[in-house]
Amino acid sequence: MSASPAIIRRIVTQRQMKPKRLHPWPVRVMHWANAVAMITMIGSGWGIYDDSVIFHFVYFPKSIVIGSWAAESLLWHLAAMWLLVVNGAAYLVYGFATGRFRERLLPIRVRDIVATVRDTLHLKIAHEDLTVYNAVQKVLYIVAIGAGVSQVVSGIAIWKPIQFSGLISLLGGFQGARLVHFAGMSILVGFLLVHVALALLVPQTLWAMLTGGPHLTRRAGGHR
């Protein structure tokens, strides 16, 4: 049996007419899957780090690490890595293929950054329109995505320093790779603190990431 061309045309038109939401369902699923993966990777990574610290006196208390000892932390870390990598790859493909990255994260103008920083210092956090990211937000998201990619690359180098010895030389040796991996973690934890604090400060954003958020008008995705 074949659907009549008229029905197909109607379905296609309906899909085109249906207004897109700020966070379509794939974005929401990938966001929360990534939240689980990141928190597991960071918590278990702290447990692994504690076994042989890079900086003396910098260690993570047992109460906040995932895994009661190094072997357990490693089990968590090398299991959650699959979720992080598969989900992260899907997110990158989706972001580029649908144009979401271009729409949401570009362009970034220096004067916009200055203006946003000035507004923020005057305690004016403009979030009336959730569909437009301010310049600082754009920069933060790009830094976080870059740090995530860097974590995967340095993580692979640490996991397989002989099989991928080229990566190790690129990162300045095995301890260099550990340092890069630690730095990437620090950037991501810093991002998470700001990200979660702002989400709690402007709860509509949190709600939008659960339910999809406002419908985008034709103009949406355009720039301020």
Partner: peptide
């Protein structure tokens, strides 16, 4: 290079 699972 000897690499320990602990990181050293």
């Amino acid at each position: 290079r000897h690499i320990c699972v602990e990181g050293w």
